[in-house]
Amino acid sequence: MIAFLRLAVFGFIAMTVMYLLLSIYSRSVERERLEKEWDGEHDGGESPARDAYIEAGMRDYEKSLRRKLIWLVYVIPTLGVLLLIYLTNY
């Protein structure tokens, strides 16, 4: 039981670290894409319109499917453990 709790706790910590890293990365990639999209269509450097465009894009991103797919970081290892238990013992 202790061993199971240890696996659960450390597994949860590892998955959370991975989840945070992935969401930061994904957000950063999305922001860069939005910046490049704006810069490709408009001249000039930073402006309030550009900031507004990027913020609106980021708000859309927070509701997007890709944002939600990061939750798979928790789902896949758990399914993997269940699959391993099944394959090893049955």
């Binding site: 061993a3 199971f4 240890r6 696996l7 453990v81 391993l84 238990i85 090893t88 013992n89």
Partner: peptide, 15 residues
């Protein structure tokens, strides 16, 4: 191996 390292999750030794 149970829940410990390495993660084979083997519980069926008797089988």
């Amino acid at each position: 191996t149970g829940w410990s390292w390495p993660p084979y999750f083997k519980f069926d030794t008797a089988n």
